[in-house]
């Protein structure tokens, strides 16, 4: 009997360990996916929204906020690889200046232990600018 109890205990510990490892890996994947997608979205939105005509004529960089806003959403959606969860992607700073500040939250219903089911939140944040190399014009 003692041997059965010993074996059952070992089995239980092993199952708990396996469950923990799986749950931890899934959270990491969601977090990485969110971070990479936000980074892509912000960088590409900044590049794709540069007012090329204004740049050619005035030789300074401005961006089109409407284009940047749409590009941000498109590129985030295009970059996402993980199917689960719900996402809030936010533009904190956006106007004609070549600066975009953004963050993104992903809520994911994951299993953090063997018995409980709860939301896991991953988050990422960044600021990108297009800056002149020279300190004076």
């Amino acid at each position: 009997m003692a041997k059965f109890l010993m074996a059952g205990g070992v089995m239980l510990l092993a199952m708990l360990f396996i469950t923990f490892v799986f749950a931890y890996d899934e959270a990491t994947i969601v977090a990485t996916d969110n971070k990479v997608s936000l980074d892509n979205a912000t960088r590409n939105a900044l590049n794709e929204s540069v007012n090329i005509g204004h740049l050619r004529v005035n030789e300074e960089v401005t961006i089109d906020p409407q284009i940047a806003r749409e590009s941000f959403v498109r590129n985030y959606a295009d970059s996402v690889g993980f199917k689960g969860g719900e996402r809030y992607i936010n533009l904190y700073y956006l106007n004609e200046k070549p600066i975009i500040a953004s963050d993104a939250y992903t809520t994911y219903e994951g299993h953090t232990n063997f018995t409980n089911v709860e939301d896991t939140i991953t988050r990422s944040r960044n600021v990108y600018i297009i800056e002149a190399k020279n300190l004076t014009r």
């Binding site: 985030y76 959606a77 996402v80 719900e86 996402r87 809030y88 992607i89 936010n90 533009l91 939140i121």
Partner: peptide
């Protein structure tokens, strides 16, 4: 994050 929408210029729920 659900209740933060008001503090951003734009928020998109996906």
């Amino acid at each position: 994050p659900v209740d933060m929408a008001g503090s951003y210029r734009d928020t998109f729920y996906l």
